[in-house]
Design a protein around this nucleic acid. Sequence first.
DNA 1: GCCGTTTCGATATTCTTTTATCGGTATAAA
DNA 2: TTTATACCGATAAAAGAATATCGAAACGGC
Lengths: 223, 223
Amino acid sequence: MLVAMTTSISVPSLRRLPLYLRLLETWRAEGRTQVSCTHLADDLGFDSTQVRKDLAAAGATGRPKIGYDLQELRDVLRRFLGWDNPGEAFLVGAGPLGQALVAYEGFAARGLAIVAVFDPAPAPGAMVGGKPVLPLTKLKDLAGRMHVRLGILAVPADQALATGQLMAGAGLQGIWNFAPLRLDLGAQVVVEQVDLAQSLAVLSHRLASLSNPSDPPKSPEPP
Amino acid sequence: MLVAMTTSISVPSLRRLPLYLRLLETWRAEGRTQVSCTHLADDLGFDSTQVRKDLAAAGATGRPKIGYDLQELRDVLRRFLGWDNPGEAFLVGAGPLGQALVAYEGFAARGLAIVAVFDPAPAPGAMVGGKPVLPLTKLKDLAGRMHVRLGILAVPADQALATGQLMAGAGLQGIWNFAPLRLDLGAQVVVEQVDLAQSLAVLSHRLASLSNPSDPPKSPEPP
DNA sequence: GCCGTTTCGATATTCTTTTATCGGTATAAA
DNA sequence: TTTATACCGATAAAAGAATATCGAAACGGC
Ligand SMILES: NC(=O)c1ccc[n+]([C@@H]2O[C@H](COP(=O)([O-])OP(=O)(O)OC[C@H]3O[C@@H](n4cnc5c(N)ncnc54)[C@H](O)[C@@H]3O)[C@@H](O)[C@H]2O)c1
Ligand SMILES: NC(=O)c1ccc[n+]([C@@H]2O[C@H](COP(=O)([O-])OP(=O)(O)OC[C@H]3O[C@@H](n4cnc5c(N)ncnc54)[C@H](O)[C@@H]3O)[C@@H](O)[C@H]2O)c1
C-alpha cells in the first residue's frame, strides 16, 4: 500500500494528469521506455518544474539523469486516477449526446465502462450502441445489485435535478453531469459538471477580442 | 463604443460568466428585473465579491442598494462574450459526437449557429440534423464565401491535426477542438480544447479518494 | 577514476486568484 | 428628516499556483 499523502493535489494539477497520460500512451506505442519531465513539458507547452510537481503529487518518483520509467509512470498515474480497473457506469438519457457517449470507445482507456442505458419510457427492444435501453424504474434495483457507483447524466436541463436526485437515491456516489445546470445533491454525492458553454465562452471572447483588439489577451512583442 | 479595458479578464472569471448568464435567463423568464451579486453568489456557491469582480471585468455596472438591471446585465455579458449576434460555424466530422452537436439547440442562445457540416466522403444526399453533409473539399471555398470564422472539430484523433491545418488554411480563425489531442496551429488561430478526460479525471479521483479516504479533499469540520 | 551533462527534488520568488474589509450611495420606512 | 438596510465599488490581505533557482544524483565518455 502506498503511503498516505500529506497534501492534496490541486484541481489544475489533476486536470493536467490526463494530458501526460495521453502522451505516455503515445510514446509507449512508439517503444520508448524512459521519459523526462523536460520532454513532457516541451511537448505540452508547460514548464518542466510544473510537470515534475504534478507527477510528484500523483505519487510518481523518478531518478536523476534517467527520468521516469514510462511504464511505471503510466501505471502510477492510472492508479492515482482510478483508471486502472474498469469502473462501471450507468448512462441516463439516451438522446443524441447519450448515444455519442455510448459509442465513444475512448472511455475504455480511462477506466470507464458504460454497462447500462436508461431512459424514461424506452420503446421495447430499443437499443443504443449495442446496449438495451432500460426504463428508469429499474435503475435503483440494478444499481444496488451491480454495485455501480458512477452515473452519467445526459437528460434535458429541466429534468436534470429530479433525475440526479433519483440517481443519488439509487446509491450512485458520483455523477458526471452534462446538463447545463448546477446540480446540488448534497455532500454525499460527487458531482462533476461538463459545461460546454464555459469552454465556448473562452473561445468566443478570444475570437471577439481578436477582431476587436481593444483587449489584447497576450501580446508577445519583444522590446 | 465602450472604453478600452486596461486589464484583461482572467480565464477563471471568463468561464464563470456563462453560469451567471444562465441564471439571468432563468430569472428573466420568471419576470424578475433586478439582480444582486449576493443572489447570484448564493445560488452558485461563490463569493459575492468574486461575482461583483467578474461582472465588473465584463463591463457591467450596477447601483448600490438596487443591484444590476437584469436585462442590461444580460446584454452586457452577452455582448462581452460575443453571444449577442449569431456567429456562424462549420462542423467538421459527422460522427456521433458531431451529430449530437448539430442536434443541440442550446447553441443558439450562445450565439452559435452551425451552418454547414463536412465529412471526407459523405454519401450523396447524406443529411445530419436537417443539414446536408458536404465533402471536405468544399470547405475552403465555402469558408471564404460565407466569411465563417469558427470551426468545430469532431474527427478521430489521428485525423485531427491534418484536419485542423486544413481548417486553418481555409481561413477559419477559431477552432473548437473536441478531439483528445493538443492542437498547435500557430498564433493566428485560436484553439479551444474540449477534453472530457480532464473532467473525468477530477471525478475519478474524487470518487477514488472517497472510498479510500487517505486524501480528504475538503474536510468541513467546525472546531 | 574524473568530469561534463542531464535531470530529479526541494526551496524560494513572483504572479494570479480568491476572500475579507471598509466606505459610500440609494431606497424605504419611521 | 432621520435612520436603518442592502448593495456596489475599491482596497487590502490571504491563499494558491506558476515559474525560477540551486543542489544532488546518475550515466556516458575521456
Ligand atoms: N447534444 C449536445 O451536443 C449537447 C451539448 C451540450 C450539452 N448537452 C446537454 O446534454 C443533455 C442531453 O443532450 P441531448 O441533446 O441528448 O438532449 P435531448 O433532450 O435530445 O435528449 C435527452 C434524452 O433524455 C431522455 N429523458 C428525458 N427525460 C428524462 C428523464 N427524466 N430521465 C431520463 N431520461 C430522460 C429523453 O428521452 C432523451 O432521450 C441536455 O441537458 C443538453 O443540454 C447536449
Ligand atoms: N463520441 C463521444 O462521446 C466523444 C467524447 C469525447 C471526445 N470525442 C472525440 O470527438 C471526436 C469525434 O468523435 P466521434 O465519436 O464522433 O468519432 P467517430 O470516429 O465515430 O466519427 C468521426 C467522424 O469524422 C469523420 N472523419 C474521419 N476523418 C475525417 C477527416 N479527415 N476530416 C473530416 N472528417 C473526418 C468520419 O467520417 C466520422 O464521421 C473524436 O476525436 C473523439 O475522440 C468523442
